[in-house]
């Protein structure tokens, strides 16, 4: 699985470069972006929208996973694929749909990043790894854990580059991952 998905990543990345060149591009919001001040810190309108949508998506996912039949089926497949097949869950369809929803949310994140800082073809790899790190340190299989992990990762990275130079960001992120894998492999919030 992991090897094949790495293959897909390199193929799509190469295709993007071929069509859109490897230049850095930005999406513009049209007109100047508004800026808000909260406790003396500055946040742009786009960043505020990102923050709110992040929390919104967390809420929706948590409700879907807890309350609906579809959510229960997902949990069943995650727990034991064989047994859920036996009790009549179409596991392949569930997995396909989850993959679809996950990709859609990731696509949304890509659009937001385009508005906030800009996009380039090779950004996928580092963002993917950040996503994986965030979900592992937050706790796999836990929506709140994912959000918590993402915030923790963001804080540690940015407080880290406050002390040492900015190019170490990736190294800090992976250092955090390895520390977590060693000492708390189940993440902050256990399922």
């Amino acid at each position: 699985m992991i090897v094949a998905s790495l293959g897909v990543l390199t193929v799509i990345q190469a295709i993007i470069v071929m069509f859109f060149t490897s230049q850095f591009q930005t999406l513009s919001t049209g007109g100047g972006s508004r800026v808000f001040e909260i406790f003396g810190a500055v946040i742009t309108q786009v960043q505020l929208i990102i923050l709110i949508s992040g929390l919104l998506i967390m809420g929706i996912l948590a409700i879907v996973l807890k309350k609906t039949l579809f959510g229960k089926a997902i949990n069943a497949v995650a727990d034991d694929e064989e047994v859920s097949k036996i009790v009549g869950i179409d596991t392949n369809r569930i997995i396909g749909r989850v993959f679809f929803i996950g990709s859609m949310i990731a696509g949304l994140a890509g659009i937001f990043i385009g508005f906030d800082t800009g996009i380039e073809p090779t950004m996928g790899m580092s963002l993917l790894l950040k996503g994986v790190i965030a979900s592992i340190i937050g706790g796999i299989g836990n929506i709140y854990g994912g959000v918590l992990g993402a915030f923790l990762l963001g804080f540690v990275e940015n407080f880290g580059i406050w002390k040492i130079s900015g190019e170490w960001k990736d190294a800090i992120a992976f250092g955090l991952l390895i520390i977590f894998l060693l000492f708390r492999p189940q993440g902050i919030l256990r399922k």
Binding site: L6, G7, V11, Q13, A14, I15, M18
Partner: peptide, 11 residues
Amino acid sequence: QMRVLVYGALL
């Protein structure tokens, strides 16, 4: 990019 594409697809 073709080179990258080909070995990704091969994988």
